[in-house]
Design a protein around this nucleic acid. Structure first.
Lengths: 199, 199
DNA sequence: GCAAAAGTGTTACATCTACACCCATGA
DNA sequence: TCATGGGTGTAGATGTAACACTTTTGC
């Protein structure tokens, strides 16, 4: 599991790694601004994300030396995201493994931790896991995801029972046949949209 | 359980009931603005609240004809709150039973419903209930609160078992002796602060 | 044939749910 | 004495947690 960071071009914290961010223009919604910032600075498109949720709004008066009023933060999830490095003006977007993050500018690490926490609790009562998965996947892949978010290993048999009991996934007749071991059955999610309980 | 509403003085929706709101001045945090708005328009003080949490940030470009950028919303909880009607400039703040709300301006009803939902889920994994209760209370009073938020009746014995198992409350040697029936034991919360998992 | 990951059931234990009666008081 | 809300336990069902071996494949 990886997190997209950019290398800041401007002060403060120029040259340091940070979450991508930018300004909201007059008459623009925060999600419109998000879309623009994402594509301009990070080479990603909102449409590539399978899930997007508002995280929190921070008062930046105290946090940011430039003294702006509010930072509305979002977190998004996608599978097999590729940044388009060709674009001009990008701030070197790069994915970093979530468990070995480099030092971040501002208090962005706290924000990341908060998002992680939120994600973890959402896993238990939504099908948000879907947003991380490709169209078809094996149960081991799914379990690995859950373990990454939970931060500890899970029992294979119990995990499979629980997942199957939720009716979120359906088995297919396709098989993953890599490596010198028994093939694994591919599964797909039963509902093709991620629930979003927010506005 | 009651919700504080004001009667709007200004357009749009002048004369209609709404959640109290206002502007954030340059260099001000949203909570500072909240404090000012509360006391100026609603005759309440942030300090009277036992719990405060950011609810959501709405893009008001579309929602509000005045075309402002973002509304950062908060919800707060207190016990035995009294508005100071004496203050000048108040917009007729009044408490309304949460289950019989009048029509509201803007889409404030949706916001209220969202807050309710959030509150309900928080009850299960925090001691947020505390914020609604006076210092000492009977188990029946507490159960009534939980039933109001849940929207359905709860089993008395199961409720008591669950509550006691959480170690959130302690019994006292004091008794509530009103009415012609057996007195009820007063309880207090074990921890005197409400957990706030947010920033 | 062996290494590697896939797949599969059962039992003990904890938790949750449904349910009915006696108690202490004031009028 | 009676009406009112306070207070208590148990049994069945459900859910959770712990645990080990066989299967299929590529090399």
């Amino acid at each position: 599991m990886e997190l997209l960071l950019i290398k800041r071009k401007n002060e403060p914290f120029a040259g340091e790694l940070a979450l991508p961010g930018g300004y909201v223009a007059e008459g623009q919604t925060t999600t419109e601004a998000l879309d623009k910032v994402l594509s301009r600075k990070a080479g990603l498109n909102l449409g590539q994300l399978k899930y997007l949720e508002q995280l929190y709004s921070f008062d930046t008066v105290a946090r940011d030396p430039r003294g702006h009023a509010v930072s509305v933060t979002y977190y998004g999830i996608g599978n097999d995201l590729k940044v388009s490095y060709q674009k001009a003006g990008l701030e070197n977007p790069e994915f970093f493994p979530i468990n070995e993050l480099p030092p971040l500018a501002f208090d962005h690490l706290k924000i990341v931790e908060y998002a992680r926490q939120r994600l973890q609790s959402k896993l238990s009562y939504t099908n948000i896991a879907m947003a991380f998965m490709p169209k078809r996947f094996t149960l081991s892949q799914l379990q690995t995801l859950y373990e990454q978010i939970a931060g500890h290993p899970l029992d294979k048999r119990n995990f499979r029972k629980q997942i199957q009991a939720q009716n979120l996934i359906k088995e297919t007749d396709e098989w993953y046949k890599e490596g010198r071991h028994r093939p694994a059955r591919y599964y797909v999610f039963a509902k093709q949209t991620v629930q979003n309980l927010d506005f």
